[in-house]
Design a protein around this nucleic acid. Structure first.
Lengths: 226, 226
DNA sequence: CATTGACTTAAACGGGCGTTTGAATTTAGC
DNA sequence: GCTAAATTCAAACGCCCGTTTAAGTCAATG
């Protein structure tokens, strides 16, 4: 009876225990980040999760649907945290415009914090990089819809940087996302490059570094282009 | 007779025509960047290249060896161009230290130029992001060895930014690489975010933007961390 | 013009893939 | 404690993968 699959797909809290689904999601998050969606087989995945091979298809419907569910879980938490920090910064500014540095902090801190402390969001950002172009079309569309959440930051930054044309704000926000991605995709290169000097141990220090760098880039003098 | 595979693998210029090998490499570069190494089948790849299915194994030995050859071709050209620009900047400085902005330009310009004008290096940077963690171990080792080329830029930047501790220079160079990667991995998100306002049409303008941003980040005031 | 060697081709190989099945087992409601 | 649904399980399905094979093509060589 596969009624469970459809029900569980629609509503998050069925009567049955939720353990298996989460165990699978956690294992998938780890493996998809280490390798690639299509490089990880369901046999490898279910074995790492300690569940039966058929469990993925039973609980999610397909491997593709698992990827989508995985992304949804991570995106919801990350965007919720970012939105909360941005709202708090705006309240602190008393209805005015928060300084660039605080907007940047709202964007950067959740990604760093959650990615290394929470088991649920661990490696989420690294996974996003792989999902693009690899996963099913539906997953890619979800990534694009994520843009809506970034729009809030674009607007806030545009108010804080009134001398910049709109498109320049978008470009610099885009670069800021690239800096964040570098924390999850190429750390090995940095460790090699620095001879082990640079590592992801002190998260607060790393966060401060990223915020300094991104803030400076956003506040860079504007020289008209093209 | 598979003698051809070994010979062609060792020496770049056999007596036979080189067309097929290059056609395969070009098709692989495009497809591996669009999807993922393991998401592209040899049947799909050889069909796109217009060659026989067995051609990859004949000319490269295996799918893995193709990936390695592909990376080698791109890395050689990119690093050569970067090294040349850096050397020229140093000569312009008359033995002294070039300004940060010129070091950054030497790092950034080849990646942008080659990636969009040359058919050989097109999509090379986007491919690198996927190769990490997906490809065979040998490919990953090659990526790490690439670090040697970045070391020159780290040294040059350290001289230009003497107030920064060494590890801070490494971190900021790392972030600079992340900004460059953002040009090849998430352009779709930027296009969506900006409503089509931002695009990769005017390469000179984009290059100037990246250089501005990265230079500002590198020159950001240093606040002691952790 | 026969021979050689580089290259191409179509066909096949075993293996691992995502998925499905149907029976066994566990869980929840009465 | 019975019933019925939800879940787990081992086994199998067919498909497509990377690779190999052996025959075929073609240009250059002597």
């Amino acid at each position: 009876m596969k009624a469970g699959a459809d029900i569980a797909a629609d509503m998050e809290s069925t009567g049955g225990r939720q353990d298996t689904k989460e165990v699978i999601l956690d294992a998938a998050e780890k493996l998809f980040a280490e390798k690639t969606y299509s490089a990880v087989s369901l046999r490898e995945l279910t074995q790492a999760a300690g569940v039966n091979l058929a469990a993925v298809n039973y609980h999610f419907g397909s491997k593709d649907a698992l990827l989508i569910a995985l992304f949804r879980r991570g995106a919801i938490e990350l965007n919720r945290a970012r939105a909360r920090l941005l709202r708090e910064a705006e309240e602190r500014a008393g209805g005015g415009t928060p300084p660039v540095r605080e907007i940047v902090a709202a964007l950067v801190l959740p990604a760093i914090r959650y990615s290394f402390t929470s088991t649920r969001l661990a490696l989420y950002n690294q996974f996003v990089a792989f999902a693009r172009g690899d996963g099913p079309a539906e997953a890619r569309e979800m990534l694009d819809k994520e843009v809506g959440h970034l729009q809030r930051f674009a607007l806030s930054l545009a108010r804080a940087l009134p001398h910049l044309p709109q498109h320049e704000v978008y470009w610099r926000l885009h670069f800021a996302m690239g800096v964040q991605h570098s924390l999850y995709t190429d750390m090995k290169r940095l460790e090699t490059l620095s001879g082990g000097l640079c590592q992801l141990d002190d998260l607060d220090a790393v966060a401060a570094r990223v915020i300094d760098y991104v803030t400076a880039g956003l506040e860079a003098p504007y020289t008209a282009k093209g």
